[in-house]
């Protein structure tokens, strides 16, 4: 098998993110992880919702889908159920996935859908220019919380762990090697993976310096994945920002594996075709 290279995943479209946006790091890490996972562009679908981060599928050469506000997960689930052989990656923002579409995340975790969700978390609504997000901090001043937020931020990782999540990680766009490694592990995982990718918004809420100061890799501190309780403890650090794979289990079958058993093997969009002469010639022409 020939390994693909980064160029195969290059899109013709240049990102329109602000210079310095954390999402550049996520895009680079995703491409790197796909190459290192031995994936080819036609084996991958990248889907998104609405937001700055959700423009990502346009910037990578795979199958792509730009969905609607909060809906990357059901889009990804639909694709995966119909085409189980595809690696399906949902890329979204905190407004999208932790806000308007968080219910879908809970249920994808519960079902253990074999999709990988990368949430570019910047604790602000960037595309609409700076309103309160579900992960905005207590006291954070935004355009819709000018007195400072009075709502406790959502804790997506413990919530999804509690919902039955089988792969739960956090990483930081300022730590690209780590991010690529986390994504590679998520791709290997059989089931739902939630990656909280801290991806600061340099324009509306720049937390680069703060995150750089406070983040650390739990792996560097000798963390070993064991049980849920240990994961809960590792996630909960009021003084710092822990990154790494907090929890992972391969014990649970993915939803799609179970679905295949029920359906007798054949996936909805994968029909067995006999390759007749005309189809073969067409294919040769198309790929020549």
């Amino acid at each position: 098998m020939r390994l693909s290279d980064l160029k195969e995943f290059e899109s013709d479209t240049r990102p329109d993110w602000c210079p310095g946006c954390g999402d550049f790091g996520v895009l680079a890490a995703l491409k790197d992880a796909l190459v290192k996972s031995g994936k080819k562009p036609h084996e991958v679908a990248v889907v998104s919702g609405i937001g700055c981060s959700s423009n990502l599928p346009g910037y990578i050469r795979t199958y792509g889908f730009h969905g609607l506000h909060g809906r990357p997960v059901p889009v990804a689930v639909g694709i995966k159920n119909a085409n189980p052989s595809l690696t399906v990656i949902a890329t979204a923002g905190d407004g999208d996935e932790y806000g308007i579409g968080f219910n879908h995340v809970v249920h994808a975790a519960r079902r253990n859908d074999d999709i990988k969700l990368i949430v570019m978390n910047n604790e602000i609504y960037g595309l609409t220019t700076g309103q309160l997000s579900p992960t905005s901090k207590l006291g954070q001043k935004t355009k819709t919380s000018p007195d400072g937020s009075i709502i406790y931020p959502l804790q997506p990782l413990p919530t999804i762990l509690g919902a039955g999540g089988t792969f739960i990680a956090r990483t930081f766009s300022g730590d690209p090697k780590h991010m690529s490694w986390v994504i590679q592990e998520a791709i290997k995982h059989r089931g739902f993976a939630l990656i909280d990718a801290i991806s600061p918004c340099v324009t509306w809420y720049n937390i680069y310096d703060e995150v750089k100061k406070l983040f650390y890799r739990i792996e560097d501190r000798g963390y070993k994945i064991t049980d849920q309780q240990a994961a809960f403890n590792a996630m909960n650090d009021p003084q710092g920002i822990p990154t790494g794979i907090f929890y992972r289990t391969e014990e649970k079958q993915s939803f799609q594996e179970k679905l295949a058993e029920i359906n007798g093997g054949k996936a909805p969009a994968e029909s067995v075709q006999t390759l007749d002469r005309n189809v073969a010639l067409q294919l040769i022409q198309e790929f020549a």
């Binding site: 609504y125 595309l127 609409t128 220019t129 309103q131 355009k143 819709t144 000018p146």
Partner: peptide, 20 residues
């Protein structure tokens, strides 16, 4: 009760400011 979406967002931002 409010939720941002383009091109409406400026309305709720303005009200948030006035309330403050």
């Amino acid at each position: 009760p409010a939720y941002p979406i383009t091109p409406q967002t400026e309305i709720i931002e303005t009200i948030a400011k006035w309330v403050r």
